[in-house]
Design a protein around this nucleic acid. Structure first.
Lengths: 132, 132
DNA sequence: TTATAAATGTTATATTATTACATAACGTTA
DNA sequence: TAACGTTATGTAATAATATAACATTTATAA
C-alpha cells in the first residue's frame, strides 16, 4: 500500500485540481487555475508539483511537460511509470499492466547499470481518433 | 537499412557537433557551439534538431531536454527508442536490445489504442558511479 | 525553366523552470 | 513548552527552453 502523506495546503490545492481534471495539466495552466486560491507564483506551483511527484501522487509526462494524477493506487509508485498518449487528441492514460511492469522492472543488460526507475511513453491514436 | 538523407548545411553542422560530442547536448549549448559557424538564432538550431529527429539521426532525451546522436544504425528508427540514464553523472546511452524492442513494439493492451511509437528511459547508476 | 518544397535568416515573444532570499508553520524531543 | 531542525510558504527576479511570424534563398523535380 501507498504510504499516507499529509499534503500541505498548496500541495492539496494543486493535487485536487489535477486529479479532478482527469488528464494531464501544464504548470502554468495550473497556476492560472489556482490564482483565485492565493497561489500567485510559478515557484509555488513547481514546489508543490515536485513534492507530489516525489511522493507518487502525480507523474510528469516528460514528452508533454505536463502532470497527471497517479491512477495506480498501489505498487512501485513513480519508479515505474508507463503512459499511452494519443498524438491526435493528446489524451493520456497511465498503463497498469503487471506483465509489462514486471518485464521492465527486471530488465537488465550488459551495461553494468543498475536500473532503479523507468518511464515509458507509448504514442499512437486512441480509439476515437482512429475512427475519424 | 536507414534511408540516406542529404543533410543541409545547418543540419550537418549540428549533427556533426552532437555526434562528435558522444553524449547528449542541449539546444542552447549547441547554439553556443555553432555560433562561430554562423548559426546565430535558437530557431535555426531547433529547426535542424526537428529535422534530425524526424529522420532518426538524433533522438530527444525527453527527461533531460537534450539531444543525442542515434547509435543504432538500423531498424525502427525513432519509432522505438530506449535509453539508460545515469542519475549521478548524467551519462546517457541508447539501449539496443532486440528482445526489448520486440516486446515493446508488439505491446498492446485493452485500451483499443494502436501504438506506433514509444520512448523508454531507464534511470539508475552507471558502473562508475555505483562504485563511488 | 518554372513551380514547389525545403531550408535559411532575423526579430520578437511565448513557455517552462529555477535562483536567491526572507519568513512562517510543523513536528519532534528534551 | 521551549528550542531545534525540517518542511512549506511568499515574493521578485531571471534563466532556460521553445515557437510564431515574416521575408528570402536554395534545392528538387516536373
Amino acid at each position: 500500500m501507498q504510504k499516507e502523506h499529509n499534503l500541505s495546503k498548496n500541495q492539496k490545492i494543486i493535487f485536487d485540481l489535477i486529479d479532478k481534471s482527469g488528464g494531464p495539466m501544464k504548470a502554468y495552466s495550473i497556476l492560472f487555475n489556482v490564482q483565485k486560491k492565493g497561489i500567485k507564483a510559478p515557484l509555488q506551483v513547481y514546489r508543490a508539483l515536485d513534492k507530489l511527484v516525489e511522493i507518487g501522487k502525480i507523474h510528469k509526462i516528460e514528452s508533454r511537460n505536463a502532470f497527471i494524477a497517479c491512477q495506480n493506487s498501489s505498487c512501485q509508485i513513480s519508479k515505474a511509470t508507463a503512459f499511452s498518449i494519443c498524438e491526435s487528441c493528446e489524451n493520456v492514460s497511465e498503463i497498469s499492466n503487471s506483465k509489462l511492469s514486471k518485464y521492465l522492472s527486471n530488465f537488465s543488460d550488459d551495461s553494468g547499470m543498475k536500473y532503479s526507475k523507468y518511464n515509458l511513453e507509448f504514442f499512437g491514436l486512441c480509439k476515437k481518433c482512429k475512427s475519424k
